[in-house]
Each structure stands twice: as structure tokens, then as C-alpha cells.
Design a protein around this nucleic acid. Structure first.
Lengths: 343, 343
DNA sequence: CTGAAAGCGCTTACAG
DNA sequence: CTGAAAGCGCTTACAG
């Protein structure tokens, strides 16, 4: 049953039926009621979305492209919050959310991806070729990295990390250490060698976080270049644990007494592993995170961290993509949460 | 730039260009190469997905309809795992995932939802009217509830809960209690009164879980009808906590010494709150969960629970929707994980 | 307020 | 192996 069938059935033109569904002001309320009533009676569920999208050029679909695999992103609290924010705005505007992973679109867009009316790209900077496969006219917003000529949404990573490190360094600290995430140009899950090449601040947010840590360390009289650093490839317990275990297993006089972690996931993994080993938190080891996820706050000891509002990031991106807000890069502020892991 | 433009440019018919992209066997490799090369050169990115979907009737989009809000589902470990499994299969088949919430489609399908080639409906049974708005010819798979005439995917909830309760009741238990989820017909966040109406096993999986608990309780010499029960409306810390706090705050001789919880989230909330109160686990209170989420296993004390493979549930649903597997209801088995919360 | 007609960009039998 | 043509189901200026 198509719109045309319905029009024939009712003895009106297809334009009138279309207007009944899309432009109530274009026909009399009485006629509109008759058309809608008859449609219901005959089981016509309204204009076909595929045909409508071809005709109007708009699909009412917004795609979110996640840098990581969907499996990772869906299980990551921060990415999930971002998606919540996006979904909230899209729902309210009658749009729907298509989920894509940059991992699966190395060469070409899968099936329906090119149908989207706009793209929100989240996480690490994807390859240039991926960005080129996207329709050029479609709006695009980058979240947590930059694409030249396109608006991007960030939190104040550097300032946040400066603030939390300064807080941590108020207490006497002998051996600070930094655990990074996706910071090195080449894959590296373990200690970062001094000569290792790092991604730029445009490519990864953790570079700015490191800059913030360095500024606070420098001010506190530590030589940043002498502070040991580790890198983690994926923000999960399984990938974090093998990097963190050897750190915690160092002898008492070598083990860091402060670990500045660029994510809550890293800090929580360190916390769990430290507890397993009977280390006292914060006496033997102080830990800071980043993100402010629930899991770090609804536990004892509570995590000292920086809260970023990922839901709001998602909302902003969605509003921009839908044109509710003019496209413009913006920087959200964060909030220091002082918990028990680093009082 | 359209397929037609490209055909004109090359001096071939549109059919040939279409075949170059879709049916390599229908033209000579040389011509195909020329067409694809020229397309790249001229910036033609391949056939338009909207037009193709209208023409072929298939969009290569599969919709997952989540009973709960997207915000909740995206932050729930179990739902996220299911989505991972779905996404994994869809990706491999060149399909994409559209995310919908039953909450937002009470009356009508939003924008592009009707475009999907198939529907995976997850969680609580949605209203009949919602199911009626879906295209009748499109395949549909229900996960964790039943829709008459459609295949459904379940885990062996009853057997799993019988098993874990039997394990727990091996130790002397004076005052068992059960904390349920979305079990009552009317909203209820607190104690369940004896006369309260419960949802049926077709509507909510927790009814089958309760049946399993009851069987083990009965076998262990407890009168199930005398076991106190609570219901929780949403599987989050914030909603669980106000129900659990009063339970833990009961005097020592009234407080349950075993809490059978129908989800890990509930059990973990109880665990955290019990730790806050200085209760010893498992000496003062034993706790069991359901799901086997990472958060319950990567902590001390480790949660005693039943692991269900939600990723596999998602994969099965996706395979069925894509026709890789014949549509048939199935029941996945679970695994008892004995942790420290109820040794 | 209503209707006839063009056309969105493709794919696919079908004829050659 | 290639091409001319129909048509997927709509929406939208435009004419009346």
C-alpha cells in the first residue's frame, strides 16, 4: 500500500495525501482527518522513509563515527555518555542515530553510512582518507580532536590536568609517574622511551593533558623530563593491567608514590591492583584520574579526578549538526573532584 | 555528480556504470577499471545510498529497539555487550546499526526508523501498539521477552537462578532476601507487598529468575512466600541505593544474611553500601548477582554471580535478522561464577 | 484549497 | 558484453 494507492482509494491527488502527512496547513482539517483516518483503516503507515529521503535529500539520520571499535566504545563509560547526549537531542528533533566505527570503514563507507545528514566524529583523529569518503556537503563536527575547516568540541584538557596535578603535588611527592593513553605515534603498551615520537595536540587529547601535568610538575620543582611515563593502547582493564602491574611491583623505594593517570579507567585499574597487593591508598600510593565516571565515585576509596561533562559534549555536537546552534568550535570546562585516592 | 553524469562523461550507459559498482561479472574488467578509475578521478563516491535503497527496497540498516532509554541502555554493561555483538555481525556483513529507544516511539516511528531492513527488540516487552507501527514484512527478533509468532532469544534464567540460589543456600541461611528488577506490574521502588501484581514470564525475564530462586529456597526448606522481596525500577546505582540502604540499616537480627539479587548492578550497589557501613562480606552478609559484568569481577571482594554471554545473544539476533541463521527461538546457557561475595 | 506532472538517483529485467 | 527504458514512492513548485 503506497501513498498513490491511498490517493486513488480516496479519489484525491497524491499531493493532497502527501500534504495531509507533511503540511497540515495546505488542506482543510476535514479532508486531512478523512485522509489520516482512511490511512489508518487501510493500514497505510505514512510516507515511505526511503522514498522521502531520496526525494527530499535528507534522511533524518545522523551518524556518529567512533574512532575505536564499537565493542570498545559501547563499553566505555565516557563514550556512552557522549552517545547519550547525542541521542537525547536527536530524539527530541525526530532524528535517529546511526553508529559507525572508523575501524570498519578504512577504505569505504559501509552500506547506508553515506545516507546520513551529518557526521559527528569522536575520539582519535581518523585517517585523512576516511574523512574524504564522507560526503563533502554534509555537516561534520569533531569531538576531542581537530579537523581543519570544521568545528570541534573539546574540554579544557590542559587546564584540567594542570589543576589536578597541582592539587596532587601540594603533598610531598618523591616519585611522580604519568600513565598516558594513545599518546605515542607508534603503538606502545608499556614504558615510553625518551626518544619515542608522540602524537600532536590536534591528534590526541592526551597530549594536552600531558602538557598540563608538565606545567604543574615544573612549578612544583620536578623536572618533567625526568618523570617516568607509560602509555596504554586501549582504555580497558585487560589492556591497562599488564602495564600497571610491573609499576606496582617495583620495590618500595622505586615505586611511584603518585600516579597521574589520564583516565579514570587507568586509575581504577591501578587502584584495584594496588588494593590486591595490600598497598595503602593514599599513604603508599596516591592516584588521580580523568573523566569522573560513576564507577570511580560510587566506591571506597573514591577516586580523585576531573569531571568532564561528556553528555553535554554530545548534546552540543548534535545541536550543531542539526543546525540548532551555529557551527563553532568550543571548549567546555571541567571540575576537580577531590576523592580519597589523592586527598 | 551522479551515476548518470558519470555515464555521460564516459560515453556508456547508466546500467554499465551501475554494474561496474554492483555486478563486476556483468562487464569486462578493463571497462570496469576505466569506470572506477574515472569515478575516483571525478570525485564520484559510488551510487547514492538513498536512491539505491528506494530502488532495491533494502537499506542495509538494522534497527535495535531498546526498551529502556538510550541514556540508560548505553550506560548499562549488559545492554552494551548485546549491542557489541549485534554490531560485530552487522559490520562484517556491510550493514549498519540504527539505535532506537522504545521510550521515544510511543505513538509513531521517528524519522528513518521505518527504513530498517529488520528489527532487534531488546529488554522489556514494549507496548503492542509499538510493535504494530513496525513494518509487518520486516524480520523481527525479540531478546529477553517473547512476541507471538516471532523468534526470541533468551538465557536459561530460571535454571541459572536455581543454580546460584542452591549454591548460596548450601551455607546456613537464616534470613534470605530477594531483590528484583522490573518485576511488578505497577511501578514500585521498594518492598513488594504480598498482594502486588507481578509481570508474567513472557513480559519480564526477572519473573523466571524469581521462579528459579523459589525452587532452590523451597528445596532448602525455606518458605518462598515468607522471603522478603524488593523491587527496583531501574538498574542504576542511583535508583538501587535508596531501596538497599534501609535493608542494610535493619538491626543485626532483622537484616538479611543473604541477598539474592537479579543483577550485578544491584549486587554491586549492595556491596558498596555494605562496605560503607562496615558490614563484613561474606560473614555478615552474602550477596549474589546476575550477568557477570566486568565491574563485578575486577574488584575485591569478587562478586558471586551467573555469567550470561550477552555478546553472543547480540550476535545470534543479528545473524537471524540478516538471514544467516534460520529464524528460531533459542535459549543460551549460563555459567556460575563463584566469587568472594558468596563463597 | 486541490491536482497534474516532473524528477530525486538509482537498479534491473530485457532486448540486442 | 552493452544500452534504452521503466519505475521504486515519494515531494514540490506550479497552475488552476
Amino acid at each position: 500500500m503506497t501513498l498513490k494507492d491511498l490517493a486513488r482509494e480516496l479519489g484525491v491527488s497524491t499531493a493532497t495525501v502527501s500534504n495531509a502527512f507533511n503540511r497540515p496547513d495546505q488542506l482543510s482539517p476535514a479532508l486531512r482527518e478523512r485522509i489520516l483516518g482512511e490511512a489508518r483503516r487501510l493500514g497505510y503507515r505514512g510516507p515511505d522513509a526511503k522514498a522521502r529521503s531520496l526525494r527530499t535529500g535528507r534522511s533524518r539520520i545522523i551518524a556518529v563515527i567512533l574512532a575505536e571499535s564499537l565493542t570498545y566504545s559501547l563499553n566505555d563509560a565516557v563514550a556512552s555518555e557522549l552517545l547519550s547526549g547525542v541521542a537525547e537531542v536527536l530524539d527530541a528533533q525526530g532524528h535517529t542515530l546511526l553508529l559507525l566505527s572508523a575501524r570498519q570503514m578504512q577504505s569505504e563507507l559501509p552500506g547506508a553510512a553515506s545516507m546520513a545528514d551529518g557526521y559527528i566524529v569522536y575520539g582519535l583523529m581518523p585517517s585523512q582518507s576516511l574523512l574524504e569518503t564522507l560526503p563533502t556537503q554534509a555537516p561534520l563536527v569533531a569531538v576531542d580532536f581537530d579537523v581543519t575547516g570544521r568545528p570541534s568540541i573539546h574540554v579544557d584538557d590542559e587546564h584540567a590536568c594542570y589543576t589536578i596535578a597541582r592539587h596532587a603535588l601540594r603533598r610531598a611527592t618523591r616519585r611522580p609517574g604519568i600513565i598516558n593513553l594513545r599518546l605515542t605515534a607508534e603503538a606502545c603498551n608499556g614504558p615510553i622511551a625518551p626518544d619515542q615520537r608522540l602524537l600532536s595536540a590536534e591528534q590526541t587529547i592526551t597530549r594536552s593533558r600531558l602538557t598540563g601535568f608538565y606545567r604543574a610538575l615544573d612549578e612544583a620543582g620536578h623536572d618533567p623530563a625526568a618523570v617516568p611515563m607509560w602509555n596504554i593502547e586501549e582504555n580497558t582493564f585487560e589492556v591497562c593491567a599488564p602495564v600497571i602491574e610491573p609499576i606496582l611491583d617495583l620495590p618500595d623505594d622505586k615505586r611511584p608514590d603518585l600516579l597521574l593517570c589520564v583516565s579514570d579507567r587507568i586509575a581504577l585499574t591501578a587502584l584495584t591492583l594496588a588494593e590486591d597487593r595490600g598497598l595503602r591508598i593514599p599513604e603508599d600510593l596516591r592516584l588521580t584520574g580523568f573523566d569522573g565516571i560513576a564507577e570511580g565515585q560510587y566506591r571506597a576509596p573514591r577516586l580523585t579526578t576531573v569531571r568532564q561533562d561528556s553528555v553535554e559534549k554530545g548534546r552540543m555536537a548534535a545541536r550543531m549538526i542539526l543546525g540548532l546552534t551555529p557551527p563553532a568550535s568550543s571548549l567546555l570546562s571541567t571540575e576537580l573532584l577531590i576523592g580519597d585516592s589523592c586527598p
